Simulated scan of single mutants.
Amino acid sequence: MGGGPTLIGSVQRAFRLLEAASAHQNGAPAKQLARETGLPLATAYHLLRTLVHDGYLRKLDDGAFVLGDRLRTLHTAGRGQALLSRVRPALTALRDELSMAAYLTFYEDGEIRVADIVDSARSPRAPLWVGFEDAGHATALGKSVLRELDGAARQEYLSRHPLNDLTPRTITTAEELLRRLDATELAPAVADLEEYSLGTVCVAVPVYSGTTLGALGVSMPRDRLSRLEEIRERLLPAAGRVTRGLSLTI
């Protein structure tokens, strides 16, 4: 092997520069970062240019280097993973207790997005043939979120999402959808009765991650329709555990 720097060594030096830059709230120039990390100035310059190019660092007008947007994105994603790992045991317990796949969604940036699905061979997930972002009106998880939104937020969401006809049971008018949301006998739970996928029934209840609204739900074959009340009673305490887990500070 040649005597040049190895890839591992370059990665280690890049990490040292990131750590040094993060220690300075207003950033630090290349010479200072090189001195603090013990790197030759030429090596530091080369790595700093690469880190800036890839978005891990940002160079200010005065020549100082600060952490870049890509690192902030990684931090946010990592925090989300930590939150999900904290509540996944509750989803797993719900799946095992009911023998049904469990789902967790959040309402973020005006969209209903799946955050986690816990299923198994014995408790398979529903066939996700249309993305949840385009099927909020037809899924229990989406309808749970819509039920919790205020009138203006509901209308804003519905103005951006056509109520596509996914099955013969799908509700395709906003007026009827809102009427049923407000009149559901399972409140605060909401059901999807083969509106997203024929042969599949879902039930969901609201959860919160701080101020972010979400929904916890399960799916089942339609022959278990008679268990809706029982499932609602199992979902509500599980939703409380999930909300508490999501609301703890990391």
Results as ranks from 00 to 15, higher is better:
Leu158Pro: 01
Ala140Met: 05
Leu177Trp: 03
Arg125Asp: 09
Thr170Gly: 10
Tyr157Val: 00
His137Asn: 08
Leu141Phe: 07
Ala138Val: 05
Asp165His: 14
His161Glu: 06
Ala174His: 06
Thr170Gln: 12
Leu163Arg: 10
Leu141Asn: 07
Trp129Tyr: 09
Leu198Cys: 08
Leu163Cys: 12
Pro162Arg: 14
Ala126Val: 15
Leu166Lys: 09
Asp192Ala: 14
Asp192Cys: 10
His161Ile: 13
Thr172Lys: 08
Arg125Gln: 13
Ala174Tyr: 06
Leu141Trp: 10
His137Ser: 04
Asp150Leu: 00
Val130Trp: 01
Gly199Tyr: 13
Gly131Gln: 03
Leu186Ser: 02
Pro127Ala: 05
Thr172Gln: 08
Asp134Ile: 12
Ser144Lys: 07
Ala126Cys: 12
Glu148Leu: 01
Gln155Tyr: 10
Gly151Phe: 09
Arg147Gln: 07
Thr170Leu: 11
Ala153Thr: 07
Gly151Thr: 04
Ala140Val: 08
Glu156Asp: 06
Asp192Trp: 01
Pro188Lys: 12
Leu141Gly: 05
Phe132Ile: 12
Leu158His: 04
His161Met: 11
Pro188Cys: 06
Val201Lys: 01
Ala140Asp: 07
Leu181His: 03
Glu176Gly: 00
Tyr196Gly: 15
Leu149Trp: 06
Gln155Ile: 07
Thr170Asp: 07
Gly131His: 03
Ala191Met: 11
Leu146Val: 03
Asp192His: 06
Glu156Gly: 00
Leu198Ser: 12
Gly151Trp: 08
Ala153Leu: 06
Pro162Gly: 13
Leu178Arg: 07
Ala138Glu: 08
Thr167Pro: 12
Arg160Asp: 11
Leu149Gly: 07
Arg169Ser: 14
Gly142Tyr: 00
Ala135Cys: 00
Ala191Asn: 09
Trp129Glu: 14
Glu185Lys: 14
Pro168Arg: 07
Ala189Tyr: 02
Gly136Cys: 04
Val190Ser: 09
Leu128Thr: 13
Ser197Pro: 03
Thr139Ile: 02
Lys143Tyr: 10
Leu158Arg: 03
Ser197Asp: 08
Pro124Gly: 12
Leu178Asp: 08
Leu166Asn: 04
Thr173Phe: 04
Val145Lys: 04
Asp134Asn: 14
Tyr196Ser: 14
Val201Ser: 01
Thr173Met: 05
Arg125Lys: 14
Leu181Tyr: 10
Arg169Gly: 11
Asp192Gly: 13
Ala126Met: 11
Glu194Leu: 05
Arg160Gly: 08
Ala189Trp: 00
Leu166Asp: 06
Cys202Trp: 05
Thr139Cys: 01
Phe132Cys: 07
Thr184Lys: 09
Arg125His: 11
Pro127Glu: 08
Arg180Pro: 09
Leu177Ser: 05
Pro127Trp: 03
Ala152Asn: 00
Leu149Ser: 06
Leu198Gln: 13
Thr172Val: 15
Leu166Thr: 12
Ser144Gly: 15
Ala138Cys: 11
Thr139Met: 01
Ala174Cys: 11
Glu133Thr: 08
Pro168Leu: 10
His161Trp: 05
Ser197Lys: 09
Asp150Tyr: 00
